[in-house]
Write a protein that binds this DNA or RNA. Sequence first.
DNA 1: CTGAAAGCGCTTACAG
DNA 2: CTGAAAGCGCTTACAG
Lengths: 338, 338
Amino acid sequence: MAKIGIKQVAALSGVSIATVSRTLRNPEIVSEKTRQKVNDAVKKAGYKPNKMGSSLRTQESGNIVVIIPDVTDPFNSGIICAIEREAQKLGYSVLLGDTQNDPKRAEQYAEMVEYGQADGILLFSYNLPIDVTPDENGQVNLPPIVNVCESTAYENIHKVMVDDEEGARKATQHLIDLGHKRIAVITGNENTTTNQNRLAGYQKALINAGIELDDRLIMQGNYQIDSGVEQTKKLLLFKDRPTAIFCFCDLMAMGAVKVLHDNGYAVPNDMSVIGFDDIKFAEFTYPAISTVRQPVDEIGKTCMHQLYKLLKDKPAEQYIELKTDLIVRDSTGPAPKG
Amino acid sequence: MAKIGIKQVAALSGVSIATVSRTLRNPEIVSEKTRQKVNDAVKKAGYKPNKMGSSLRTQESGNIVVIIPDVTDPFNSGIICAIEREAQKLGYSVLLGDTQNDPKRAEQYAEMVEYGQADGILLFSYNLPIDVTPDENGQVNLPPIVNVCESTAYENIHKVMVDDEEGARKATQHLIDLGHKRIAVITGNENTTTNQNRLAGYQKALINAGIELDDRLIMQGNYQIDSGVEQTKKLLLFKDRPTAIFCFCDLMAMGAVKVLHDNGYAVPNDMSVIGFDDIKFAEFTYPAISTVRQPVDEIGKTCMHQLYKLLKDKPAEQYIELKTDLIVRDSTGPAPKG
DNA sequence: CTGAAAGCGCTTACAG
DNA sequence: CTGAAAGCGCTTACAG
């Protein structure tokens, strides 16, 4: 049995290949009768139009690539899941671009659109893996791309962001409201914009409450669970220990809680811990982690829609900012007396 | 600036497009001098060969699709990460096929190879989303596919499996060795082969130790964290409570530990809990979860290599079984006296 | 409403 | 070692 192409279907239904193509792509411009014949033949032959053929002709791969540091991070995998669901609805397939924090890999993935392998990019990085030096005409040739969660310095790029500063402010304020005065943070990777914004939110909340900033309470983490462990250990060494720790992601909060337990501290009675993200497991740890929820589904959906608009040459908002929610669970409580 | 295609490069270097193509794909059959010229032109023009063009010609998309139930599951995301790393080394890109447990979606992803969108499939399911009824000549037309972790009933398919039964046996034996006699399990989705094999391993260990099987101790979970929570609650209601719970994945073990804590049980003093998988966070929960490690990186690497062999028409092993390791941490301890 | 033809951007068998 | 040409499987402007 030879492979079924458009030619075979055309022969089977007694029309030209042009008409077969039209029936499949623009049924409304084909007569009812012909349409019927063709559709019957398509079904009978089990014809599946070859994507490479149509892609080459239309100059659209039908793929988008999502460039993201680490699929293994539960926040990221949640986002990817949301993107994929939305992409499918819009008729796109998603290529996975897990950079594993390697800029070279990011560049390779970004090049996929130059190679015609993908039509657009969803970029979760503060680092633009694309050359934006203007050409001789002062023009920058940017592929369809939307920058998500992390913000690139380059301005002329569509962005879907989360109000990290406000989120961090709310988390810190929550601790302040509970009577905490010595509030430590465990940060994410230094250069990320999420980290910088969350740090700003933390500091503003403290200043606003008239609490003096103490740089010793700012511990450098990296959004990974072990850094939550390591930095918390350092914090426990202090003579003037903090009474609360604000971790810039839930994973690090898990690590912090772990260390606290291991060393005989009750959470939240001896020490409060709050995270950021609201990953799926945050409510299932013991104690359930208070956190700042990022609207994962909305982020995924929104950025995919924005990219879709760019791909279809429709007007898209230059900048969209999504809101967070403070989720109070069991890992935060009143500051211990004394 | 017009788009740079092979024609422009050919013109720039004063050779035919055929020679440009050869220089890029088979440099060794091109003269040193020509090669130089062409490579210079390629670099100067910033030429990126169009993938759709070459794919159409070679009939290879250069993509593989991984069909997996839920990227959001940390075990799965670990696997995907490993696959992607390996795929890239072998020159393939990976299309994400998150089925969200919907068979329709699985079929759609599987069809990607019929549409020429992907060259092969990595299938993490006991359900074959492909029609294998033989055609008039008794032939089954199977795309390049390797079945991973979960096993399909269809035999003529290459498989990379994990010795789930042995893994479950080891976990159960570990509990038996600690003096436990009433050992409950919280299973995964009923129909999955992983679940069936783990259940068999559990039962064999008990029988082997002369412990009577009690079906009431078999709780139906679904590999999701909430089912660990729900089923543990039911277990605690029993008058003759178990002293240990073997969860068929770490996520459910996290849920179990959570419920135990919430209800005042100390783990492992009052109740031991052991998981399966060894996801990244298993060691960072409190207490750190004892578990059965699946060789995630090896699984990802091996299945990708197997698929690669199929794609390149090289001989590939029909069946590969990978081993697990028992990882004893802090969530399992001696059975309480009494 | 439909067909014949051009062409998307490559690769490769064939000939020299 | 290199070029001219065919062709991968489609879509679509053009003509009728």
